[in-house]
C-alpha cells in the first residue's frame, strides 16, 4: 500500500464579491494525482504560482480540496474523525520555507523542538532533554543550542531546528515546502545532503516542494512537474534533464544558468 495517494485533487480560488465575475477562477490546481511510496521522495517542481504550495497545504490537511481525495496510510484525510486526524497528524509533518517565521520568537529551541513531543509523548524532563539533544546532534547542531532563542541562530541553523522538530515524532511523511530556498548555496547543499541521509537512515518519505531543479534532482527519487496547476509529467529524477515534454523542458531548462549567458549584468 502506498503511503500517500493524492487522487484527482482540484482546488480553485474563486474571488467572491458583489462586483466580481468568476473569471479569475482559473487559478489553483486541477486534477492532481500522485502517489508517494514509503521511504521515497517525490519532488514537486514548478514555477511560482504553479500551485505547489496549494498542493502542500491540501496534503497537510490545512486546505480542503474542492474535489478529490487524499489517502494517507489508506485513510481519507478529509473524511477522518477528529481523533483519527490527530493520529494521522503525528505521521505527517512539515518544514516551511522561512525558518524564522516558522518558530515562535518567544520560545527557546528546546521548547520549539519539545512541542510535538509534549503533544504526543509523555516524556520525563530528563528524557525530553535527551531526545532533544539527540535530535540536535543528528541535525549537526550542538546540544547546548537548545537553550538559545531563534534570533540567536542563523537561517540555516534555524532550518535545521525546524527539520529536527519535524522529525521529532519519527513521522512517516515530511512535507518540505521550499525548505532551502531562502538559504545560500553552501548551506542548501549541506541541508539537502542531511535530509537525504535522514531518509536513507530512518526511512522517512518526503514530499519535496521546490522551484529549484538542482535541489529537486539531489533529493528526489521521482519528480512531478507542475505547470499552471496541473501535473504535466511525472518522471524519474535521473532522467529529469532528458525530458521531452515541452513545458517540462521549459521549466527544467529555465533553471540552468546558461540561460543567462546572453545577458550582461
Amino acid at each position: 500500500m502506498s503511503l500517500l495517494v493524492a487522487d484527482q485533487l482540484s482546488k480553485t480560488y474563486k474571488s467572491t464579491g458583489w462586483f466580481r465575475s468568476d473569471q479569475s477562477a482559473d487559478q489553483g490546481v486541477h486534477h492532481i494525482s500522485f502517489t508517494i511510496e514509503s521511504g521515497s521522495c517525490l519532488g514537486l517542481l514548478g514555477e511560482s504560482g504553479a500551485g505547489k504550495s496549494t498542493i502542500g497545504k491540501i496534503i497537510l490537511g490545512l486546505l480542503a480540496p474542492d474535489s478529490g481525495k487524499v489517502l494517507f496510510q489508506g485513510v481519507d484525510l478529509y473524511a477522518a474523525s477528529r481523533s483519527q486526524r490527530k493520529e494521522l497528524r503525528r505521521d505527517l509533518q512539515v518544514v516551511f520555507q522561512d525558518s524564522y517565521s516558522a518558530v515562535n520568537p518567544r520560545m527557546t529551541i528546546k521548547q520549539i523542538i519539545g512541542e510535538p513531543l509534549r503533544n504526543y509523548e509523555r516524556l520525563s524532563a530528563k528524557e525530553e532533554i535527551r531526545v532533544i539533544s539527540e535530535l540536535l546532534e543528528m541535525m549537526g547542531l550542538r546540544a547546548d543550542d537548545m537553550y538559545k532563542m531563534p534570533s540567536q541562530m542563523s537561517g540555516g541553523q534555524l532550518q535545521r531546528v525546524n527539520i529536527a522538530r519535524a522529525i521529532a515524532l519519527k513521522p512517516k511523511l515530511v512535507v518540505l515546502d521550499e525548505p532551502v530556498s531562502s538559504l545560500d548555496m553552501i548551506v542548501q547543499k549541506q541541508i539537502l545532503l542531511h535530509l537525504k541521509e535522514l531518509k536513507e537512515k530512518h526511512g522517512f518519505s518526503y514530499l519535496f516542494i521546490s522551484h529549484d531543479v538542482m535541489a529537486i534532482h539531489t533529493l528526489s527519487d521521482q519528480v512531478a512537474v507542475l505547470d499552471n496547476g496541473t501535473i504535466v509529467e511525472t518522471i524519474d529524477a535521473e532522467s529529469l534533464f532528458d525530458t521531452v515534454h515541452p513545458s517540462c523542458q521549459r521549466i527544467v531548462g529555465a533553471k540552468s544558468s546558461d540561460q543567462f549567458e546572453g545577458f550582461v549584468f
Binding site: 497537510l60 490537511g61 490545512l62 490527530k86 497528524r89 503525528r90 505527517l92 509533518q93 512539515v94 516551511f96 522561512d98 517565521s101 516558522a102 518558530v103 515562535n104 512541542e115 510535538p116 503533544n119 504526543y120 522538530r165
Partner: peptide, 14 residues
Amino acid sequence: QQTYVVAARIMGTS
C-alpha cells in the same frame, strides 16, 4: 495566520 501557529497546528498542539 503566522507560520509558527500553522506549524503548531500541524504538530498537533491543541
